[in-house]
């Protein structure tokens, strides 16, 4: 159903430029990876705290608030560098099962992160139960780790 859209993306002059310009792809990939590192840090510093480890002397909500701008802006950079890369290899992505797994997991992870996880992370520690934050932290780590795995496998196995 989406094949014409992917064919259109592949045919864009931007896609062609990324494929032919010597440094375009490596530069996009390097910035994407740097943004991924910042994003991972912003996710993990909160998730580890949700597990009841890490920065336990600091209130959870305070850590979550401090990490939020880094989480948001690094995700924007991930999008800005990821979309042109995806467009330049659109048909390869379309036929890769890992790409679809990544996108499906990403949809779930984004909704989860900006709804349930955000609500729990911004709740005062004494109002959180013993197990809920741990479950939320584990789900978050699982979702984002699997996205990184699928993303890496698109390039390696497709």
């Amino acid at each position: 159903m989406l094949q014409p859209f992917f064919e259109w993306m592949q045919g864009l002059s931007l896609s062609n430029w990324i494929l032919t310009a010597t440094w375009a792809s490596p530069i996009l990939q390097c910035i994407h990876l740097l943004a991924l590192v910042v994003f991972s840090g912003a996710v993990l510093i909160v998730d580890i705290r949700l597990l009841g480890r890490g920065l336990i002397k600091t209130p959870l909500a305070q850590i979550a608030r401090a990490a939020q701008p880094w989480l948001f802006w690094s995700f924007i950079v991930l999008l800005l560098t990821g979309l042109p890369q995806m467009a330049s290899t659109a048909l390869k992505q379309y036929y890769s099962p890992h790409f679809w797994w990544k996108m499906q997991t990403m949809g779930v992870a984004l909704i989860f992160t900006f709804t349930i996880r955000r609500k729990v992370a911004l709740t005062a520690d004494d109002r959180l139960g013993k197990y809920l934050p741990k479950i939320i932290g584990l789900i978050s780590i699982g979702l984002w780790t699997s996205i990184a795995v699928w993303a890496r496998l698109i390039g390696l196995l497709s």
Partner: peptide
């Protein structure tokens, strides 16, 4: 390679926040 990238995210992501704390840009109240 996948394990290398995932573990790098764990290590470099957390070290980035330590460095940002040292610079005074993030988690300043910790």
């Amino acid at each position: 390679l996948t394990a290398h990238v995932v573990s790098m995210c764990l290590f470099a992501g957390l070290i980035a926040f330590w460095d940002l704390r040292l610079v005074g840009y993030a988690i300043n109240k910790v």
